[in-house]
Design a protein around this nucleic acid. Structure first.
Lengths: 196, 196
DNA sequence: TCTGGAAGTTACAGACCGGTAACACCCTAG
DNA sequence: CTAGGGTGTTACCGGTCTGTAACTTCCAGA
């Protein structure tokens, strides 16, 4: 499992990585700090030497997720330099792959569902990342020469978000199976009305 | 607040209604049975006389949500008898209204995010309701004379689901503002290719 | 070799959790 | 009037939660 992480790395990194994994699988309120530290091969005191509270650990985990997502966008640019349309199609493929990865939805969305306090520190991070992802998608659509770039980006964004919660509720054999078809169809449709 | 509910009704009904409200606002794991019974103007013993466990209470709350959703569909049929296309547009309007109701997403989806155990009794109820809703939407699309009824229903379904999590993460001023425009556009587009 | 800081260990505090036992009460149906 | 079921009250159980204190161990760098 996470033994590879446990083996050789700093306790802080092991805790962060283990917490990300366990929060993803079991939810935030479904995992205690004791369970995290034990799975990370360390102990609670060490956790509290590196993170001042569980809430801060949660925030750091979400930030780590954001960083990973950012790397994904960079990979699109690296694979298809300058070709924004190709990058957009790469995003569709990547999104579809995420749907089949496991039955769990987006960590950000799940965290938002669990952390209901309006002033919880995690909510700001969640909003920031989601807005950043939206801007990335808008930039791709605009760069691909699509007229109503914002509308297409928002539509694709909602579709993907919906597909992720769909796999979490009815499973991978539900409406989410049509995601690629929907997304590609929308891109074609929006490209056809580029002058709009 | 819920005082209207507390005033004159059976303890079981008060508990159920109060639990629905509190689960919706604060999440399932964010509310204890003590808080529910206190808000419902009763006590824990009475709760456990009517529900054998918190899990059963959760399931009953979700079933009550399902019943309420069913009533919504019936209202569409009552308002536009036989006119499936009008009912479909009514669904779009109703969905948009839900987005602006409060910052919380779908109770079913949120519950699925929180209750990660694969054999949790609530997961079955969630899946059943989501599938029932999908069938209702497919029936509406088919009845409206749309060729690819399943595809349109799934697309609208994912859009709505995505919009609900979007308001929960970035707020009501995010991509979800475009929901009606997207949905109406899709309906027009699918009607245009009815022969498909 | 010595030292200082990071990490591990054990125990604990205080709160909350879901769930139960025992008992007093009240209100309605007969 | 009386009997009984639904309800309220109090106290409690065992477990888990976040977070802390005090102490020991280890290891790298000077």
């Amino acid at each position: 499992m996470t033994d590879g992480v446990v083996e050789r790395s700093r306790p802080r990194d092991r805790i962060l990585e283990t917490a990300r994994d366990m929060f993803h699988k079991h939810g935030i309120k479904g995992v205690g700090v004791d369970a995290i530290t034990e799975a990370a091969g360390t102990n609670k005191m060490t956790l509290y030497r590196h993170f001042e509270s569980k809430d801060e650990l949660i925030v750091e985990c979400l930030r780590a997720n954001a960083a990973k997502a950012g790397a994904m966008w960079d990979a699109f640019e690296a694979e298809f330099p300058g070709d924004k349309l190709a990058q957009l199609h790469a995003w569709v493929r990547k999104a579809a792959a995420m749907l089949n990865a496991d039955g769990r939805g987006c960590d950000m969305a799940n965290a938002a569902a669990e952390l209901t306090e309006p002033d919880h520190p995690a909510r700001l991070v969640i909003k920031e990342l989601k807005e950043a992802q939206r801007e990335r998608l808008v930039a791709l659509c605009r760069g691909a020469g699509i007229g109503q770039a914002e509308l297409l980006a928002d539509t694709l964004s909602l579709l993907f978000e919906g597909a992720r919660v769909s796999v979490q509720t009815v499973g991978a054999e539900g409406p989410s199976t049509q995601f690629v078809r929907m997304a590609e169809g929308l891109i074609v449709s929006f490209r056809g009305t580029a002058a709009g």
